[in-house]
């Protein structure tokens, strides 16, 4: 498989389509896979292939399920891509999209937004997702500034600055929550993540952001490979280290912020998906990035499906499912791999 990247990516793309279809067809009302495809074609492209379904079914599929599964796919793709970026850049196996203060920044900003009583919105969003996005992006840029030592930003100071900033923001957030007990549950729910609220309008804003971010990440693939040898060796191989590092951080923060804006904090995807893909397809970022993009999407679509079905009609928080499903699978892969998984 390692020698056939095109085949691997094709299979993953097909698997994603299938996962999207299956996830949209299952629920309190089961709707046949064929109808899902037909409804999607009709509503998205105006191509009609006979209608054997009811108005209600069409509404369920088009207004509720499809935006939700597509939202899950976009969030999964964005988080997995960001995870690859951060792990490669920081050469750190436990790096994930939330490592450098993104989650802290997003959560704090979202908490503040949840405390604002007014419900005004901009574009397709209400205040919370916008605040979360800005918080995520702002936190990483703040961490980057703190970590700068002269012209350089060493990885160690970056990690430490990220940790310190996250902790500080987490404590401010706890304080705000304590002072405002009535919004506490909403904040907690938000931090557990979920894509139930995603709609087409939000997706129209976020999807281009994620696609552009993923393409930009892919353009850094060669440099990320070189980064794995350490920054000095990357420089010796011709990489403009500081510039590319700043680019990778910004793109990672953008992808994470976009995901957070739709879903709140969904953990584990950005950590585990890149590892799993690496175990199966190898560490070359030129394959790892697109494969993780697709795998992250598949993973989160299925995780959200489980979150919806297990306790139907009520739902599990998505973040709970991703950890519950993801961790054992990850451990299985680690144990199965004969080759030592070295860092």
């Amino acid at each position: 498989m390692r020698r056939q990247p095109i085949l691997a990516l094709t299979l993953l793309a097909l698997a994603l389509l299938l996962a999207l279809g299956v996830a949209a067809s299952l629920g309190t009302v089961a709707i046949p896979l064929g109808d899902i495809a037909a409804i999607a074609l009709k509503r998205a492209l105006g191509v009609s292939i006979g209608a054997a379904w009811s108005e209600t079914q069409e509404t369920i599929v088009w207004q509720l399920r499809l935006p939700r599964v597509c939202g899950a796919a976009i969030v999964g793709a964005a988080l997995a891509s960001a995870g690859v970026l951060f792990q490669g850049l920081l050469r750190n196996p436990i790096a994930d999209p939330y490592l450098l203060g993104t989650s802290g920044g997003a959560a704090l900003a979202a908490t503040i937004a949840l405390l604002v009583p007014a419900s005004f919105g901009v574009f397709a969003f209400t205040l919370v997702p916008i605040a979360a996005f800005m918080g995520a992006l702002g936190a990483v840029l703040l961490v980057y500034q703190i970590a700068r030592v002269g012209p350089r930003t060493p990885i160690t100071t970056l990690l430490l600055a990220g940790f310190a900033t996250s902790s500080m923001m987490a404590s401010v957030m706890s304080f705000l929550m304590l002072m405002n007990q009535n919004t506490l549950q909403r904040v907690v729910l938000w931090t557990m993540g979920g894509v139930s609220a995603s709609g087409w309008d939000a997706l129209k804003v976020v999807t281009p952001l994620v696609v552009v971010g993923a393409l930009a990440a892919f353009a850094l693939a060669n440099d990320l490979n070189a980064f794995l040898l350490g920054e000095e060796q990357a420089a010796a191989l011709g990489v403009a280290v500081e510039r590319q590092k700043f680019l990778a951080l910004t793109i990672g923060a953008l992808l994470t912020g976009a995901a957070v804006a739709i879903s709140g904090l969904v953990g584990f995807v950005g950590l585990i998906v890149p590892h799993v893909v690496r175990l199966v397809l190898g560490p070359d970022h030129r394959l790892l990035l697109p494969a993780s993009f697709l795998s992250g999407a598949i993973f989160l679509v299925l995780a959200d499906l489980i979150a919806r079905l297990v306790l139907a009609p009520s739902e599990l928080p998505l973040g709970v499912v991703t950890a519950l499903v993801g961790a054992p699978f990850f451990i299985y892969l680690l144990r199965r791999t004969k080759r030592e998984y070295t860092f």
């Binding site: 000095e232 060796q233 010796a236 191989l237 990489v239």
Partner: peptide, 22 residues
């Protein structure tokens, strides 16, 4: 540029530790 230098001068470091299975 870094790239231009790298096309002319290569450095074999004393120790290289590669975190992933290249």
């Amino acid at each position: 540029s870094r790239r231009a230098i790298a096309r002319r001068i290569a450095l074999v470091p004393q120790e290289v530790n590669v975190p992933f299975a290249f």
